[in-house]
């Protein structure tokens, strides 16, 4: 009745890193209020995920399985999730702030009249409330939002909360076959389109090499891809580059794109308009490469190089390869 429930997202049997971050935070919150934490996983044939989840110390792992739940379904996952919420009556529900998490959390909130805090950076818990710290106005301001409904829901910003492996006793496993009726589902998933070259999403990447107007055209991004590959990261883009049709919107970082939080963000040929700045300000370290020494990006980058990016970036790629080659 007093527990913390964490939704652990899996797609194709792979657990989201950000869900493990949520599970670790769930465990910390449960400890503070002397309660238990349960990991909820929805899917089909997912028994094998228990081992990985157990490392993060849940007291219970709740497996909800049905062959119609192999892929995400807004109607199906909501119904399965709700069934568990009604049984467990949790005090707090945590969900990773992914595409799936942001879709399902408000549906649950609506069904149980719960308050929901989106994209949290920190959570304080008391006996009757949670206070979530979250970015608003695309991160220009931080809000402390107090939720006082009997169940409180929060989605957590990926790459923000620390994962913590713990060695405790093995969790108890509950297996549930949900009472769902796929014939009643109205929004039907027809398929998932994946690009030919599988690419890490900017919202989940720990290294992002991002290009703006200074790349001069779509061809310019080849050198960014090389650098991203050398660093084990992914390519991002500014709004200018996306609106020019050089890169897909999925890669856009900024106010009308994605708000990212990598360990390293390399901004190449990006002047640094406010709308871009707010999208990447949560990066741990920012590097700017720009030929204009007056570009605003240098005011908030940790390290800058003034120069021609078509010379500097290939040199940087070579240097990074040299470094990693030694190990």
């Amino acid at each position: 009745m007093n527990s913390v429930l964490v939704f652990v997202e899996q797609r194709q049997g792979r657990i989201k890193q950000s869900s493990l971050e949520a599970l670790s935070e769930g465990r910390r919150l449960a400890k503070k209020i002397g309660s238990t934490v349960s990991a909820l996983v929805i899917g089909n044939q997912i028994d094998s995920l228990v081992n990985e989840i157990s490392k993060f110390g849940p007291d219970f792992v709740i497996l909800v399985q049905h062959n119609a739940l192999a892929n995400y379904s807004p109607d199906g996952y909501r119904d399965a999730f709700l069934e568990v919420v009604k049984q467990e009556q949790p005090k707090v529900i945590l969900v990773a702030g992914t595409a799936m998490g942001k879709d399902i959390a408000p549906r649950i909130a609506a069904k149980i009249d719960a308050g929901l805090a989106t994209d949290c950076l920190a959570i304080e818990i008391t006996d009757d409330a949670i206070i979530a710290t979250r970015p608003v106005f695309a991160g220009k301001v931080l809000q402390k939002l107090k939720i006082t409904s009997s169940t409180k829901i929060a989605t957590l910003k990926p790459n923000t909360f620390r994962t913590e492996e713990v060695s405790t006793k093995a969790p108890s496993i509950k297996k549930i076959t949900p009472q769902i009726d796929p014939s009643k589902w109205r929004a039907v998933l027809r398929g998932i389109q994946e690009p030919e070259a599988k690419k890490q999403d900017v919202s989940e990447a720990s290294v992002i090499v991002s290009g703006g107007r200074g790349m001069k055209g779509p061809e310019g991004y080849k050198i960014l891809e090389d650098l991203a590959t050398a660093l084990g990261g992914t390519v991002g883009a500014s709004r200018a580059a996306v609106d020019a049709g050089w890169r897909p919107h999925a890669e856009q970082v900024g106010q009308t794109g994605k708000i990212v939080s990598p360990n390293l963000y390399v901004a190449c040929g990006i002047s640094g308009a406010v709308q871009h700045q707010v999208g990447m300000a949560n990066s741990k370290v920012i590097v700017a490469i720009n030929k204009d020494p007056e570009a605003p990006i240098f005011k908030f980058a940790d390290y800058g190089i003034v120069g021609d990016l078509f010379e500097v970036i290939p040199a940087l790629t070579r240097e990074v390869k040299k470094l990693y080659g030694k190990e």
Partner: peptide
């Protein structure tokens, strides 16, 4: 059931 208790600059 939700209210802002504080706004601050990062």
């Amino acid at each position: 059931i939700m209210q802002t208790v504080e706004l601050s600059y990062p």
